[in-house]
Design a protein around this nucleic acid. Structure first.
Lengths: 197, 197
DNA sequence: CTCAAAAACGGAGGAGCCTCCGTTTAATCT
DNA sequence: AGATTAAACGGAGGCTCCTCCGTTTTTGAG
């Protein structure tokens, strides 16, 4: 058998040891849960404890609180984007788009409540739709195109238009009736989209 | 003797007890020294210790680190403004203005180094010359007017102009030759001012 | 001057931060 | 299957934060 190929100078991250990867994943998982439930200000020691690792391990993987927050946040955005696929498979194109928008707006709202002074989240929110941040844009694009191509919604609205409309919704001031309000607005938006030409 | 006048509903701060005032002053004094020497991130416990009071006392007077920083900062700006008077009394009007500008720029530079992420200082710096922040503006105005009235410098430059010029100087990027650079610029500015019409 | 009430003091204590380093363990070599 | 070694672990320790509350001091009324 050929021996392992000599490591060419790749920019691949140096390949974690099995136990390291396990711990890292567990930490992210626990952190996601704890952040969701108690905000990003929670004690890191608590997160380490619940993940069953020492505090030293947490700090080795995530040198600062922000590192950890960022990883959790990115992971959630990815899973949100992935949900678009599932919805597309299980709903009519327009219903898929609508439901996805509801989830997305709900997610951002939840974050905003707990973001407080977290720089990372602020920055991410600001540049959430920047050209670079293709992950969400890609999801929206696929849903929108599918619905348009199959004639469920009008064709003169593009991804950027829709993202703008969404941003005006999730930017609503937080309040008691926030959820109702945004649901109404999404309904409104969908009705508009279903109105051909 | 007339008894103490009944307290009419004034907005006067409720008058501290003698020991409270003593401790408060001592704390501000020590904090100013420690901040200057080690930055605003220093341990508050250390400040309390050096001031000879308990940590509880510090927190009672200044509920957050920012409160303390703000008080120290404001006090220093005031003494800087007060220095203008002294300079006016001991120097020729143009020399007084020049020297004051040097001190001012030096002071801001010192702060910037230690400000790091301190919100208060940032905000204050941003609004340092806002209309409201009359304390520094007043000092500059008096120096400038005196020099102009007595014919030491031209008369077509007003306080706002000068403040703008100064801000461009203290905004120089921090570097090793920062001090030299800003001194040269102030010299330049003064030569310009002394050039009649 | 005395004394009670109000105001202020101060430090112990519970919790979190982060580092450092002796121990454990996965990966690799023979 | 050992043996080797570099990676990863984890928690004790030193430090800071901030609150809470029993004790001390000031004030001013009598």
């Amino acid at each position: 058998m050929a021996s392992a190929p000599p490591k060419t100078a790749q920019s691949t991250p140096p390949q974690l040891r099995a136990d390291a990867r396990r711990n890292r994943e567990k930490l992210v998982e626990v952190a996601a849960a704890v952040f969701a439930e108690a905000g990003v200000e929670t004690s890191l020691e608590d997160i380490a404890r619940r993940a069953g690792v020492g505090i030293g391990t947490l700090y080795r993987h995530f040198p600062t609180r922000e590192h950890l927050v960022e990883v959790v946040y990115r992971r959630e955005l990815e899973s949100l984007a992935a949900a678009a696929e599932d919805l597309a498979a299980s709903h009519a194109p327009d219903a898929a788009l609508e439901e996805w928008m509801r989830r997305f707006v709900g997610y951002i709202a939840a974050k905003r409540g707990m973001a407080s002074s977290l720089k990372i989240l602020m920055d991410s929110n600001a540049s959430l739709f920047a050209e670079g941040s293709g992950i969400l844009r890609g999801a929206v694009e696929r849903l929108l195109r599918a619905a348009a191509d199959q004639g469920f919604i009008r064709k003169d609205i593009d991804t950027t238009d829709l993202l703008h409309a969404l941003s005006s919704i999730y930017s609503l001031p937080a309040s008691a009736e926030w959820r109702d309000r945004s649901n109404r607005l999404i309904g409104l938006l969908m009705d508009g989209l279903r109105t051909q030409k």
